[in-house]
């Protein structure tokens, strides 16, 4: 599944799209006042902008991969 092998990548995107459409079509509306649990601290996508930035920074500078959740940022000489 290398990047150069674009058909694999296309298949991956297709799979995610299908997953998304399946998930969303079976979703029931949750009323705004019934979203208390979704607002819990443990339900956040990241543990705060600064912590996420620092962690991303550490991993990006020690691994070949980058990007993913949220912005890809960029701009530091952190090798």
């Amino acid at each position: 599944m290398r990047y150069k092998d674009r058909s694999h990548l296309a298949r991956g995107i297709c799979l995610l799209t299908m997953l998304y459409l399946t998930a969303c079509s079976s979703v029931k509306t949750v009323a705004p006042y019934d979203r208390g649990y979704l607002a819990e601290d443990g339900m956040k996508w990241d543990e705060g902008t600064r912590n996420a930035k620092l962690k991303g920074h550490v991993y990006t500078s020690k691994e070949a991969s980058s990007g993913g959740a949220g912005s890809a940022g960029g701009g530091c000489g952190c090798n």
């Binding site: 995610l16 997953l19 998304y20 979203r35």
Partner: peptide, 26 residues
């Protein structure tokens, strides 16, 4: 020089579950 773009969507699945997917290109 580096340019980067991200696009994503999150969806409430129930009153206790939420999911998201995203794609980024750099």
């Amino acid at each position: 020089d580096t340019q980067s773009a991200y696009f994503g969507v999150s969806q409430i699945l129930s009153r206790t579950a939420i999911a998201r997917i995203g794609l980024s290109y750099t």
